[in-house]
Amino acid sequence: MTPLLVAQIGLTLFVFLMLLQSAAVMVYFERKLAAFLQQRVGPTLVGPRGVLQPLADIIKLMFKEELRPGAADPLLFALAPIISATAAFAAFAVVPFGADTTFFGLLDQPMRLQVADVNVAILVIFAISSMSVYGIVLAGWSSNSKYSLLGGLRSSAQMISYELSYGLSLAAVLLIGNSLSLTEIVGAQSGTWFGFIPRWFVFLQPIGFVVYMIAGVAETNRAPFDFPEAEQELVAGYHTEYSSMTFAMFFMAEYINMVTVSAVATDLFLGGWHGPFLPESLGWIWFLVKVAALLFFYVWMRWTLPRYRYDQLMRFGWKILLPVAVLNLLVTAAGVLYFGL
């Protein structure tokens, strides 16, 4: 085995483990931040300042009994959480998170910090996120419960509606970046305008960025768009009948999807690993900082805004967000044509 191959396998394992534990870190982060926003203290008992709380939660979930409703479709009921979790992990495979590196001279040639360098990376992410709908729809249907079914149907309607705006906001960035590869788009964002404004696409695409973030929240089923699991109406929505680790898989998929949406937003709009003060080889620190800032925004929004009503969500998606995204794409296309960016 060549050193490059070993490094590639090691990187793949590293990304997998990081994603796995990012869900646990996010749970702690979210609970502490929620407590802060609501003037509570949050978890404090397990470990210093409660940092071991996620670990305790995982152990608890593992030892819970796994239940399956008698009338459920056994195969699809087991398959649904697997689809959700697999799609969540797979999407991150094409996200680059740092400049090419030789790992302090260990490798002969530099390696890209990305699991798979696909030249249609954005489409791959988009395709995988469209497949993750199946996990939720099938969980809702196979549980044979009215709460699950309604949650699953709502979720699929919501994801289909917001996928359009999501895709159109991405298309505008593709026009400016002139590539479907995330690495090339990040590369196009290096340097500065007038010496002090970073060349991030968020300054060229402010509307696109807002549309992307709103659609991203809807795609990951987070508050204020968390209809699939509106507690007051649907108990727990599509995962009402799930318990133990199968429930944990849905939970984990939701958090990993948040991380992926934030990471893609960082690559597309916030210049990826480019930033001032740090050398290119330490760019991944900038990347982590930006992703963390977007994740903070996610949590902040969840604990600040109340949930919309379902018809409001649909009206907003189709009558406001989609026209804005289409106009943004048209204006961007005209601008690229006129200025020849």
């Binding site: 395709a127 709908v133 249907w141």
Partner: peptide, 25 residues
């Protein structure tokens, strides 16, 4: 690869979800 991604995106991820929707309703 472009056609492959579009195939998954449009057919497997888009159109068939609508089929599933109709079948479930």
């Amino acid at each position: 690869p472009f056609l492959a991604a579009i195939q998954v995106l449009v057919y497997a991820g888009g159109i068939v979800v609508l089929y599933l929707f109709v079948v479930m309703l």
